[in-house]
Design a protein around this nucleic acid. Structure first.
Length: 313
DNA sequence: AAATGTTTACCAAATT
DNA sequence: AATTTGGTAAACATTT
């Protein structure tokens, strides 16, 4: 078992799956969407482990991006030049890490076939772009720009979870669970960290705060404060679901231990699309290639979505 | 060309 | 034991 004193955890593989890492990156952005390159940056910035074998893990990451429905592509508007699209979390993916494990989800989020079609996709795109506008205009935002926005999609009916999703960090989700029955992957993060040799407060209260500093106080974090790097894995965790009643993608968020919660956009290396101009009306010139009817059961539905998105507006 | 995206296949580990 | 989920490799396709 690696000891905290050693070479620290830097070189250890973070206890996060590519899905959670990606979700973190996306959620950390003010726009709640990032181009691939920025997702890479985010990960490399805080997890030294990923500064190597880039070809390998980035390929895996890309694979995850297009393979999982929880990620959606948001096409760039003409005023947002650059390579590749933006990646965002599907508004309905809810809390993918409910079980407290960022390694393995309980269920894979899948968009029902019917959901792929329809204008919903366009609405989503609109939503994200709108969010972009608001951020740019410095409009009021509860806790950081688009934070509360993600789930505030009145038009998006959570097609799955019947009722509002449970706050992943609700205390019940932390202690009120019979871990015996929980899969290994569902090991509480704190336990996992401990197992990995990370300093983990023994008391629950501390555990909670260590896992979700935004809930508690960052102070207790200082002890765990990591080098100049970003914390060792689990360290600063943050969720963005502050609106219990809404369907908001909830993901862990490693926060930069240094400054007091500097918005990701403040991180130099993480240059989020600068709120540049954005015409409310995106005029995309895209040809609607067979967006709607794709062979049923095909995973290529996501592709169709993209196209459909561009079609209108 | 290089960066992005998509897909298929295999394998291992976790979960049921 | 059978399923699921996640990681990796690889072959392509698409876009910048």
């Amino acid at each position: 078992m690696p000891r905290p004193g050693k070479n620290s955890y830097s070189d250890q593989k973070p206890p996060y799956s590519y899905i959670s890492l990606t979700a973190m990156a996306i959620q950390s952005s003010t726009e709640k969407m990032l181009p691939l390159s920025d997702i890479y940056k985010f990960i490399m910035d805080r997890f030294p482990y990923y500064r190597e074998n880039t070809q390998r893990w980035q390929n895996s990451l890309r694979h995850n991006l297009s393979f999982n429905d929880c990620f959606i592509k948001i096409p760039r508007r003409p005023d947002q030049p650059g390579k590749g699209s933006f990646w965002a979390l599907h508004p309905d993916c809810g809390d993918m890490f409910e079980n407290g494990s960022f390694l393995r989800r309980r269920k894979r989020f899948k968009v029902h076939r019917a959901e792929h079609l329809a204008s919903k996709n366009q609405q989503m795109i609109h939503y994200f772009h709108h969010q972009h506008n608001q951020t740019k205009l410095g409009l009021p935002t509860s806790d950081g720009p688009a934070v509360a926005g993600i789930g505030r999609l009145p038009h998006f009916q959570p097609y799955n979870q019947s009722s509002g999703f449970k706050h992943p960090f609700a205390i019940e989700n932390i202690i009120g669970r019979d871990y015996k029955g929980v899969m290994t992957g569902g090991l509480p993060l704190a336990s996992m960290m401990h197992h990995l040799g990370y300093p983990v407060p023994s008391q629950l209260s501390n555990m909670v705060s260590s896992m979700w500093p935004h809930v508690g106080m960052m102070d207790s974090m200082t002890s765990m404060a990591v080098s100049q790097e970003y914390g060792h894995f689990g360290v600063p965790m943050k969720t963005i679901c502050h609106a219990p009643t809404q369907t908001i993608p909830a993901v862990p968020m490693p926060i930069k231990p240094t400054a007091s919660l500097p918005p990701v956009s403040a991180i130099p290396s993480l240059t989020v699309n600068p709120p540049s101009m954005c015409s409310a009306t995106a005029t995309q010139a895209a040809v609607p290639t067979s967006l709607l009817e794709q062979s049923p059961g095909t995973h290529s539905d996501k592709t169709g979505m993209l196209h459909s998105v561009l079609v209108h507006s």
